[in-house]
Design a protein around this nucleic acid. Structure first.
Lengths: 205, 205
DNA sequence: TCGTGCCTTTACCAAATGGTAAAATTTAAT
DNA sequence: ATTAAATTTTACCATTTGGTAAAGGCACGA
């Protein structure tokens, strides 16, 4: 049914690729690209190293595949920010979705953080090709809201940066947050309330 | 004059240790702990690898020494937040100092970010011993300001997290920021203005 | 059941890497 | 200048790591 070459991936192929990517997400997000080893990934996937290299062309291939596949999930909340909604509500729920993501998908957050920290050597093209257009589109949307007087005058680009940094902080710097906050009953709830208040204050016309 | 063992470090020893730490800061901040190699550090310091191991006990020793030495510099702006000043002004200038630091010392920022991302395996003690008491002290100060009605009710801990994340973002995620912003005349000035407005709004009683 | 092609394992390898031993050289106090 | 200590280089080494070759096992349609 698909284009070009017909049915390509067998059932077992699909399962093993999934196992490998799941293990790789774990290992890469914990140790970074160069700190991760194929042996670790293989052990965690329950496969042998050569078997892993049967499914992927090499370490870099696994890493790039991971990053590309997760990019969509990662950008979902931003995509969901809609011109139809009420500006303040749209932005505030974007903040909440992003914060939930940091809580539910911390490995993904750290994977990206690691890659960007190293200068984005392997996903720069993806950033330019996918993220940049989406970013520009949403900045334009915010600018339009401002022009319509539905938001106070603010810098769309840096607003988005602030949303990204404050929310992802809880995933990327989790070990520091844990040390500084001590045992907490519900850290997420407090972070959520704080960010809501902060961005509400900023978005008041 | 100092305690215990008298003059220990010779002139040449001081120079070489400085060269090594400078090179190590560069390499570690670009590639992370496991991604950095002693050969790279040696080459960048203009020394041979065994010569480096004459001055430090090993790779980890260099890394830990770096982190400990930079910790003080890194926390300076927070230390400077004073009970004597006016609350809003104190916090706003803390934000500015922190942002300037991200601009002037991006390597230091990335070094710490890398370490925290990996779970702070080598500076957890330093965080518990030095950062935590300072953090608690400043949170208490902010809480007092709130109790005195000089600041609106807000969460001191998460306020500090927000300041850290938004400012350090420009150092740690610099490659992404550059891709998304394109060539900019003065990126720092816009970021500075944005953060000032954001925290001003939040701190209005 | 037979055989063809997909999958997996065993046995490797070359390069990179953290680290060491010890000889050679330089520095600096006398 | 002499000498003892500090510094630097040369020549290694063991381990780790990404990756490969090739043989063996397995599934599944005819």
């Amino acid at each position: 049914m698909p284009d070009g070459a017909p049915k390509k991936t067998s059932r077992i192929q699909k399962r093993n690729r999934r196992l490998i990517l799941e293990a790789a997400l774990d290992v890469f997000s914990r140790h970074g690209y160069r700190g991760a080893t194929l042996d670790q990934i293989a052990a965690e996937a329950g496969l042998s190293k050569p078997n892993i290299l049967y499914y992927f062309d090499g370490k870099e291939d696994i890493h790039v595949t991971l990053l590309s596949r997760l990019m969509d999930t990662w950008l979902d909340p931003l995509v969901a920010m809609s011109p139809q909604g009420e500006p303040v509500a749209e932005i505030l729920s974007y903040v909440q979705r992003k914060l939930n993501m940091a809580r539910d998908l911390p490995r993904e957050s750290r994977l990206f953080a690691n890659e960007i920290l190293q200068g984005a050597p392997r996903i720069a093209p993806e950033l330019t090709g996918h993220l940049k257009p989406l970013f520009d589109e949403k900045c334009a949307l915010i600018a339009e809201w401002i022009a319509q007087g539905r938001l106070p005058s603010l810098d769309p680009q840096h607003l988005i940066f602030s949303i990204w940094s404050t929310t992802q902080h809880y995933a990327d710097f989790e070990s520091q947050v844990r040390i500084l906050m001590g045992p907490e009953e519900d850290p997420h709830a407090r972070a959520s309330a704080h960010l809501r208040r902060m961005f509400e204050a900023m978005l008041r016309v």
